[in-house]
Design a protein around this nucleic acid. Structure first.
Lengths: 197, 197, 197, 197
DNA sequence: CATGAATGAGACTTCATTCAT
DNA sequence: TATGAATGAAGTCTCATTCAT
């Protein structure tokens, strides 16, 4: 047993991850400095380097850390209300809270990913997992009610995620949240409506 | 009045704009250096500064320059085939050729825009223009066939653009183009289908 | 709270201030580079930027730092000998030692001040303080001996300072120190003589 | 006989000299660019290089050119009114118009002069010429009225010039012209008063 | 002679990263 | 472990100067 609190390092790491995400999200990967992160944490720059080898590593770890958190929140929300919940404006807002910061970070991530094949593959895989998850959800909502052959669940899932990302993107430049929200429910209803009926 | 060929400066500017876009697109706004751009052009760094006051200005100008080109291509395509053309996979591909490079740049642009109110407003306005354009197109396709009150054209338009952006985004990480294409036509048909019938 | 020696930063700052003044004084504000200063200090350029935000700030701080030192030396000298001491060649020399390097810097400072309203105002105020100080000194020397209404102390003070600056200026181009010294005592005696008698 | 107007080159040169002085005076030697000068002239940068080999040469030539002009203006003024005219506030203003710009330039010149022995010597010589000129003027004013042995004309002359330069210097930072003017007449009267009586 | 686009050296400044304390 | 001063590489931008037209 070490003298220090067990799990201390883990806690410290997570604390850094949280703050780092916040800082990166606000200023952007390139504009945020290690000093910004350190100051937000109230520690010295050097301290961060004991947990992460480089800025890039910190950035990637921060994204990864929160991707897990976010996913779980969304999923739990869906499990309660099912596909119908997904079509609501409330769901859009709920997910937005979780995603907005990360969306911006994802833009930075994409840039970083472009020159890193491994990373790009990870992103692709993760995206496909989301697609499959949503597709299954849709299919599941149908229950045994109908023959599934006529519906392209995967394409629908892709579209759902695309709308989500596209609408959030429009919000970043200052788009009206009310309109985006409405666009979400309108399009979701049209897209999944016939499936639900 | 320059003794040199008239219009030379205009040409040179455009040449820079082209190359700059290419370089920024490949490396990203932050990672690309003015030297990269200069080398791609085969000129010295200083030369660029005779045409653009700063890296940011060059970046913005390059985006603007190509936004015009892109827009016109898309529009001409739509005028021929109308709303039905928009739902095709061919359209998706066609627009992709025009957009992909710019999409990445747009991510950089968003980051830049976040700390530039004027710029953000411009982006918002431009986006709204697209929305209106697409909404009108949809409404127009309906012709006098139906009462328009029941359909929220603007929301549909927003969704259409969101899907476009979202799908292109998925392609950037290496998503399968065929699947995205299919998702496009499937979702477009569902979204606009009842309008078209 | 730094673990390092307390007051270290203060010392380092002052060391930079000293060296900077020396370098600026020798090469001039514009010709001296931050690299020159860094090399004179035996540190890297970056180190300086931890203490001063810009070259201009460093320059201004260096001037300010030494202005304090200089002022105090002069004042103490005057308090002992009063107005008579001020008229001596010895005083001229004494003050010269303190001023010469700074005089050159002051020329640079004037140039900088021309495009900086705040700075210009500071200089003006500081100059007026000197004027008032000298004027009071003259008035004080008179004691209750005479009615002061007939003497324009402020104008005299202005003249005294002008002569000082003018003579030092002549020395910079290589003027003969002996002659300047003599001009000082001769003119001071004539200027303040009747006041002193 | 050349085709071009005889003396054209001379005229062009002088025109450049005039404008250059104006630009250098306003912006300072270092801050003024060759482009600034060219634009003020309404010609291209290249044109200037056909008359002057370098920026430094242009600067020096411009100063030299106007030194002559200025001197003559002042001298003519003095020849009319003699020493008494010199003591007036009017004279101070008159000379100020001629000197202010040049005073600033002289500061720049000093900096340049410091690393150029030849130049520094020229400045010293020129200054001594002024001193002698003023000294003779004072002596001349006395006429045969008195024995000159008791008065140190050269020192007085030095003081006069020093006051001029010192007061103008105070004006540069925004000092009150009225006060400087008054200081001039007050001090001149005290300095030369007994000589004049 | 004039033009002005291009050059290229070099200035200021910023950080990610290291390391002695 | 934490600190934060120092490093040094790199980036943006500026101009004096040149030269093909």
């Amino acid at each position: 047993m070490p003298k220090v609190v067990p799990g201390y390092k883990e806690q410290a790491r997570n604390r850094i991850l949280n703050e780092a995400r916040s800082v990166f999200s606000e200023k952007g990967y390139h504009s945020a400095t290690m000093d910004d992160v350190a100051k937000a944490l109230g520690v010295s720059k050097g301290a961060i380097y004991q947990y992460f080898r480089s800025k890039k590593e910190l950035f990637l770890a921060a994204l990864d850390y929160h991707a897990g958190v976010r996913g779980s929140v969304v999923q739990s929300f869906l499990q309660e209300g099912g596909l119908k919940a997904l079509c609501t404006e409330e769901f859009f807002d709920r997910m937005r809270e979780e995603s907005m910061g990360s969306l911006l970070l994802n833009y930075d991530l994409l840039r970083v990913a472009l020159s890193d094949d491994t990373l790009r593959k990870q992103l692709r895989v993760k995206h496909e997992q989301w697609v499959k998850g949503v597709a299954e959800m849709i299919q599941h909502s149908l229950g045994e009610k109908e023959v599934s052959d006529e519906v392209d669940f995967l394409s629908l899932a892709r579209a759902v995620l695309a709308i989500r990302d596209g609408l959030y993107g429009s919000l970043i430049v200052g788009g009206d949240a009310k309109k985006a929200r409405r666009a979400w429910s309108v399009s979701m209803t049209r897209l999944l409506g016939s499936v639900l009926d």
